[in-house]
Amino acid sequence: MCLVIVGAFLYAPPAAGFIGSSSRILFFHVPMAWTAFIAFLAAAIWSGLYLARREPRHDRAAAAAVELGFVYCALATITGAMWARTMWGEFWNWDPRQISIVLVLIFYGAYLALRGAIEDRERKARLAAVYAILGVVVTPFFFFIVPRITFSLHPDSVINARGTIDMESRMLQVLVASWIGFNALFFWLHHLRCRMDALRERRES
């Protein structure tokens, strides 16, 4: 990640059409949003596994993925707002992209509230699993469909409507490296969280 940071600030050039170096936030904002999406997708897969096999470790893995996805999603929202302040003059502009990412945050915030509200472990795990699987429909809708069917001030996605990537090669190299780094960090954090939960459960039982 340190190499990515150095690359983001010193190797990649600022993108044309952006104020100053504001485009450099892309190397953090975009991979965070993608990693959040992968986290929510992984949560749905672990939830499906829980419903099929009823193994508590799958429920723990799904919950940890949602918690981390929520943090990544919140950071993507904050970095997006910082960029909006520079480019559009305000942190919050009611842009469809901003609204859709906040709706995703509310959706997964409700998942965490649901888990906190139910005492019975089996019931909590079952309901949370169904909710996380529902997220497979909700998340792609807000991440990919809403921004494409509504007018938005947000710059084009990295992979544009024609399915191509129009980006300077050094910027693309840093972006891909950053994406790999953020994903690796997610899986490391997830692994640590699951191990902590497993230890706690062993201690309690």
Binding site: M1, C2, I5, V6, F9, L10, S21, R24
Partner: peptide, 12 residues
């Protein structure tokens, strides 16, 4: 840019 880079490196 160098300041932001340094702060980022320390945090990470």
């Amino acid at each position: 840019v160098y300041w932001v880079l340094a702060v980022n490196l320390v945090i990470w």
